[in-house]
């Protein structure tokens, strides 16, 4: 194994699978950055548990992408030997942890989507994706509950926690639109019954957000303008820094194993 970037043949199904794998890996890595630093021991464990769930999802999706691609790639190569422009994750999940409220709002936005997404994907015609969905759905359901309870307490807590939670919502809102957009390749997978149309989930996603925000005395922004680009490799400056840490061992010692 060298430390040079791999080439990936991004057929629609490979690309579709890699995008979801990258979401899970990058968000999992972000959460793992809290390990040893969370505000309390209990949350340190909770965030690490969620990180491990997501990295587990990423592994299954990468393995499947490798199988579909049928080349020399595997889960490790996808994770360690692709550069920023080859990553296909949502901009939302690469956003820095910020404070505790920002981490939880990011998690809340993503998990509220992932919970609906995986549940719908359980009926995918692709049996592997359907099986991954069945496992991931239970994990995402808990991630959503965990984040929701925190959003309610941060929003309806002290002036300080309310201010921070509302600030995080306003800041991250523009990154949520990307979850619901599809390109032509995905459109074809949707028509084939392999993927589901994320736009069909948006109304329920908004209901979840409104219910929790209402209880939390927080307000959802009304602006419609949304950031795009992550799905096509156009990332914020934050992802490069994240990858330099995530990939440092394999880039420095190619083929290193435990």
């Amino acid at each position: 194994m060298s430390c040079a970037n791999i080439q990936v043949s991004e057929t629609p199904l490979v690309l579709y699978t890699l995008r979801r794998a990258d979401d899970a890996l990058i968000l999992g890595h972000r959460l793992s950055e809290w390990c040893g630093h969370a505000p309390m021991l209990e949350e340190d464990m909770a965030l690490s548990n969620i990180a491990l769930d997501l990295i587990g999802q990423a592994r299954e999706l990468y393995s499947y992408a490798a199988k579909v691609e049928g080349k020399d790639n595997d889960e490790d190569k996808f994770a360690y030997l692709r550069d920023v422009r080859q990553y296909r994750n949502l901009l939302l999940v690469e956003q820095p942890n910020g404070d505790f409220a920002q981490t939880l709002v990011r998690q809340f936005f993503y998990s509220a989507f992932a919970d609906l997404y995986w549940r719908a994907m359980m009926s995918s015609r692709d049996t592997t994706l359907a099986a991954i969905a069945a496992k991931s759905e239970k994990e995402s359901a808990y991630h959503l509950r965990h984040a929701s309870e925190w959003i309610i307490r941060l929003g309806d807590g002290t002036d300080e926690s309310h201010r921070r939670a509302q600030g995080a919502i306003d800041h991250l809102w523009a990154f949520t639109g990307e979850m619901f957009s599809v390109d032509d390749g995905e459109r074809a997978l949707i028509q084939a019954g392999i993927a589901i149309d994320p736009a069909s989930l948006r109304a329920r996603w908004l209901t979840t957000l409104s219910d929790v925000a209402g209880e939390a005395t927080l307000e959802l922004p009304r602006n419609e303008w949304m950031q795009q680009g992550g799905r096509f490799g156009r990332h914020s400056e934050h992802l490069g820094h994240l990858l330099s840490e995530l990939q440092s061992m394999q880039r420095t010692f190619p083929g290193l194993t435990w």
Partner: peptide, 15 residues
């Protein structure tokens, strides 16, 4: 464990 209320305590216990 430490938690601010029963719901959060149950979640933390699970985690």
């Amino acid at each position: 464990l430490h938690a601010n209320d029963a719901t959060m305590a149950l979640q933390a216990a699970r985690d």
